[in-house]
Design a protein around this nucleic acid. Structure first.
Lengths: 234, 234
DNA sequence: CGCTGCCTTGAGTTACATCAAACGCGGTGG
DNA sequence: CCACCGCGTTTGATGTAACTCAAGGCAGCG
């Protein structure tokens, strides 16, 4: 829980939320933010809890999910640097968190407590619009997820998850993308058992469109992978 | 396409969107709105099309869905009086509709064209916040839907759809709720085939917790139904 | 009184989950 | 350098929920 007041954003930091504000507003906002380190498995917010703070992921990766009534975790999406969370603090209606967020990598975040975030809203007229943009993009993402998960068979879902994950979390060059995800993480995201995920991945490796490693998947060619999986059901 | 300028809202009209505005703002807004009748099967907006107008459902019922790549329709939710649509017109980013909406009952709506809706945004500072609230509630609803559809078996999904539909579309008294939906509509909403839906409904009727009619379902007791379906998996 | 949709029923099929068991990579410590 | 251990992964056997398809029932309407 190392917290500093001298907050600054890394160079080249991209964020739908921050981009909706003027440089002046950003400066003001940063002044009242607290920086904090996060570690894997750390729960950053729990659904149902009273919303305590607004925060922005600066570095690392988090998993956003919702707890089903049966205790199961319904994966919603990955959170990457630039994503804002705890937006409920700004809205009047639900003053409780609506999703649970857990860190999956080392990283850091910028946080505003309830008072600061309220002040922020008053000082920044654009914030409301920035919030709209973020909400809209979340909504769009969710609709897509729903569309994918609703009717698509497991194979398509997994393929989709891989592509999305590659876009968000992949690294190293434009082609030949590596993604640090275990089979189990993929399975959770694609809503299937590890076994099914393994079988599909094994098949794809045999086809030569992916390479498997322990806790890591490599796509030699993203476009090649998409073509191979989207088109034929073989 | 009968359109009048003398727009007014029915007495006791409830709407998350409108409620976020001041009476003065509402008055101004109504002045620039056009009223229009809608009929079943009429497509009110099509995803991908350039967003032409902002509108508010006044009377009737609409279905909100998204078209899957394979042409399948992924049902998202029902739209009831008070719901606002075409919100993309207000946001900068996606100026195209993100969902397809089709009328399923006779009704009417209030519409603002692009110019009017832009003017509206300038005149009503609260509109942006009202929009926040609407987006947030849509988001919450979607997350719930995803949670339900993700892991729950068909029976639970259908039960859920019935309860939600009863809340939104049901009529006649507090207990003994009637819902005008065909088996097929239920099946689409619960993401299953008509056959499966029929079987579950038949079973429930045998248990005495629902009564089936042609194009209509009757729940003698909503609470009774919920208890019978949520608890035991029998 | 027949027609048109909606609804029902059953038999066959399939994709996926479940479970049990074992493999092998990559650390750690001897 | 090797023995060990744990976790991520793999494989196969088995079960089952739900889809598909074919066929027939039945309500309401002209």
């Amino acid at each position: 829980m190392k917290a500093t007041s001298a907050a600054a954003l890394p160079l080249g930091f991209r964020s739908t939320f921050v981009d909706g504000l003027t440089p002046r507003e950003i400066k003001t906002a940063l002044r009242s933010a607290k920086q904090e380190r996060i570690s894997p498995r750390q729960i950053l917010q729990q659904e149902g809890d009273r919303a305590r703070r607004l925060w922005l992921l600066v570095r690392g990766r988090v998993a956003v999910y919702r707890l089903a009534p049966d205790g199961n975790r319904v994966f919603l999406r990955w959170g990457v640097p630039g994503d804002a969370f705890g937006l409920s603090t700004i809205l009047k209606r639900p003053e409780t968190y609506v999703v649970t967020i857990e860190a999956v990598q080392e990283g850091s975040l910028l946080a505003w407590d309830l008072a600061s975030s309220r002040t922020l809203v008053l000082q920044s007229p654009n914030l409301s619009k920035a919030l709209n943009a973020v909400l809209a993009s979340y909504l769009d993402g969710l609709i897509n997820v729903l569309g994918t998960y609703a009717f698509q068979p497991a194979e398509q879902r997994l393929a989709r998850v891989l592509v999305e994950s590659a876009r968000q979390l992949g690294y190293t060059g434009r082609e030949c993308i590596e993604i640090d995800l275990t089979n189990e993480q993929l399975a959770v995201a694609a809503r299937m058992t590890v076994f099914t995920a393994t079988r599909k991945l094994t098949k794809w490796q045999a086809q030569g469109i992916v390479t498997k490693h322990r806790g890591k998947i490599v796509l030699p060619s993203l476009s090649g992978f998409e073509n191979a999986t989207k088109g034929p059901s073989s």
